[in-house]
């Protein structure tokens, strides 16, 4: 199998580790190549951390954060960065990721991954905070593209270009969330193929897949909402195939956060991604041999 050159996480499918599955994962040791945990869920001690440390012994783990607010105009919350650092030092994950978004202003945490204006000012701020985070953690960070439900009038840079420039300036990698590309593309009338084509393949360190919902608004319009509450949509699988064709085999994670189903359902989604990864693997091996 082609091993990822991107840390200790293999270029295979993994699943998001959620509290309801802690015991099942420990008891049944499911056949899955790796797991990803939310950094913020393991900032204390006790039972949760013990589960994670137990699982860490048998599976490659990545840590995915939601609270650093890399896009805040204000400084990064130093206390939160220290908490992230402690979890990273304790777990020694294969990959560490965060989001291209913001959630803190006036020291208040707005508990969401909020959209940034795509401006030179925001780009400079995000790069400064990514630099600071990478220096503190002493490792490369992956930055994930968000799902968004609005755009700002004064944005001047396409999101894919913004993300590529963050990667180029800071040396960080990109966590390409294929579901988020699809959701944002539907919501804003973008072409998802243009988005994928705008990302630098060498920077892609991980792919995310998840389900989303469609919400009908009062005026008859529809917005797609990234709720991680269902199976991956057929159109997102199709876009994933395009992403693999472009990026090659990349560690791929299936996330599910709302109405979390039995573990087997997640494993089924991961198995489907694995089939596609193996196919890509073979195609890349054949191309190398030719």
């Amino acid at each position: 199998m082609l091993q990822s050159k991107r840390g200790s996480i293999p270029a295979k499918a993994g699943i998001g580790l959620r509290f309801p599955h802690h015991q099942a994962v420990v008891d049944t040791r499911p056949e899955v190549a790796w797991l990803e945990a939310h950094t913020e869920n393991y900032m204390g001690g006790g039972t949760s951390l013990r589960y994670l440390e137990t699982i860490r012994r048998d599976y490659p783990l990545s840590l995915h954060g939601v609270g650093l607010s890399l896009g805040s105009a204000e400084e990064i919350d130093a206390a939160h960065l220290t908490r992230v650092q402690h979890v990273v030092e304790r777990i020694e994950p294969g990959l560490v990721s965060e989001h291209l978004s913001w959630s803190i202003v006036g020291s208040v945490y707005l508990a969401d991954l909020l959209p940034l204006p795509m401006t030179e000012e925001a780009l400079a701020i995000v790069c400064r905070h990514v630099d600071q985070t990478q220096a503190t953690l002493k490792r490369r960070l992956l930055i994930e593209n968000p799902s968004t439900y609005l755009r700002f009038r004064h944005s001047t840079i396409p999101e894919w270009e913004f993300l590529s420039r963050v990667a180029e300036r800071t040396g960080c990698g990109i966590l390409c969330d294929v579901n988020n590309i699809y959701v944002s593309a539907c919501n804003h009338g973008w072409d998802p193929a243009t988005y994928l084509a705008g990302l630098p393949p060498a920077a892609i360190g991980e792919i995310h897949l998840a389900g989303h919902a469609e919400r009908q608004l009062n005026n008859g319009n529809t917005l797609r909402i990234d709720d991680h509450g269902s199976c991956v949509a057929p159109a997102v699988w199709a876009l994933y195939a395009e992403a693999l064709a472009r990026f090659g085999p990349v560690p791929t994670l299936v996330e599910w956060d709302t109405n979390v189903p039995p573990l087997e359902v997640l494993l089924g989604e991961a198995a489907r991604a694995d089939v596609m990864l193996e196919e890509t693997d073979r195609e890349y091996a054949a191309a190398d041999a030719a």
Binding site: L110, A111, D112, L114, P117, Y149, L150, R151, F152, R153, H154, H188, G189, R215, L217, N218, N219, N221, L223, I225
Partner: peptide
């Protein structure tokens, strides 16, 4: 500051407000 684009900016903002409250 928001592009309306067929959907009222207030409806778009409401999605974020609801997430904040529900989380």
């Amino acid at each position: 500051y928001i592009v309306a684009d067929g959907i009222d900016p207030a409806a778009r903002l409401g999605i974020y407000r609801n997430t904040f409250a529900s989380v």
